[in-house]
């Protein structure tokens, strides 16, 4: 698809996280509502794990979204020596819910870390149901990615209800929340903190800790310095910047 061509430059991501921050599991699962930023985060997470000298694979298990999927960045990721598990090339743009069969191999292959990008809502999370036996055998860390400026999930109750729904559809446990509150290139630090405040309340009620807040690449990283909070700075792969380029 065309957007792939629009994203050409990639910066090195800066992080404030330690490799052991999320336990010792080698499988990382990203779940969440539609458009909460799972795919972008999965790619960035994979890049980070790569930088930590791991063997990294990333699985595109999005059976829901027609556009903006990991598979759109397959060339870039391959160049970074990250293995992309996606539907076969001839079906890459097909409107079909294809689960790449290779995924089983990467769950069981302990040489590799595996990052799994799951489609939106409980409908997307359902694909995990068929993998749950393998996942519990090999262990995993599951993140719920949340943007509190998205429709439907703007208060505590609706997010708590969502987390229940995701866990029962995916048939796995969510270990961490990720605050990915943003409004694209208009995102500010205040806005991110607004999201974090809301998710703190969710965290208290659900007992699920917050892993970190996401900071987009264009925000000044100065704010990270001295902060006790955990941030993950991402390169935005699916922004509209290439369409509306400033000159």
């Amino acid at each position: 698809m065309g957007t792939k061509k629009l994203n050409t430059t990639v910066e090195v991501i800066t992080l404030k996280l330690k490799s052991s921050d999320f336990g010792n599991e080698r499988i990382f699962i990203f779940l969440g509502p539609f458009g909460s930023g799972k795919t972008e985060l999965s790619i960035n997470f994979a890049l980070w794990r790569k930088k930590l000298n791991k063997k990294v694979s990333i699985a595109d298990l999005d059976i829901i979204s027609p556009y903006f999927r990991v598979r759109d960045h397959i060339d870039f990721l391959s160049k970074k020596d990250i293995t992309v598990i996606a539907p076969p090339k001839e079906f890459m743009h097909a409107d079909l819910p294809i689960i790449p069969p290779k995924i089983m191999g990467y769950i069981t292959n302990t040489d590799y870390e595996l990052i799994m990008d799951i489609g939106g809502e409980n409908d997307g999370a359902m694909v995990l149901g068929m993998l749950k036996d393998h996942l519990s055998e090999f262990g995993y860390t599951c993140f719920a990615v949340l943007n509190t400026r998205r429709p439907f999930y703007r208060n505590e109750d609706s997010i708590l209800e969502l987390l229940d729904r995701l866990q029962s559809s995916a048939k796995i446990k969510i270990n961490y929340l990720i605050n990915n509150t943003n409004i694209g290139k208009e995102t500010t630090v205040d806005l991110i903190e607004e999201g974090e405040d809301l998710l703190k309340k969710v965290s208290e009620k659900s007992g699920i800790p917050i892993a970190f807040s996401v900071i987009p690449d264009f925000l000044d990283s100065e704010i990270l310095i001295g902060s006790e909070k955990k941030f993950f700075r991402i390169k935005r792969f699916f922004s509209n910047d290439q369409i509306d380029q400033e000159v």
């Binding site: 458009g35 400026r149 998205r150 429709p151 943003n182 409004i183 694209g184 208009e186």
Partner: peptide
């Protein structure tokens, strides 16, 4: 109201 991050389809539906 305050800004929300939405998909085009959602924007049209809510509008």
């Amino acid at each position: 109201s305050e800004k929300l991050m939405v998909k085009g389809t959602e924007a049209i539906a809510e509008a």
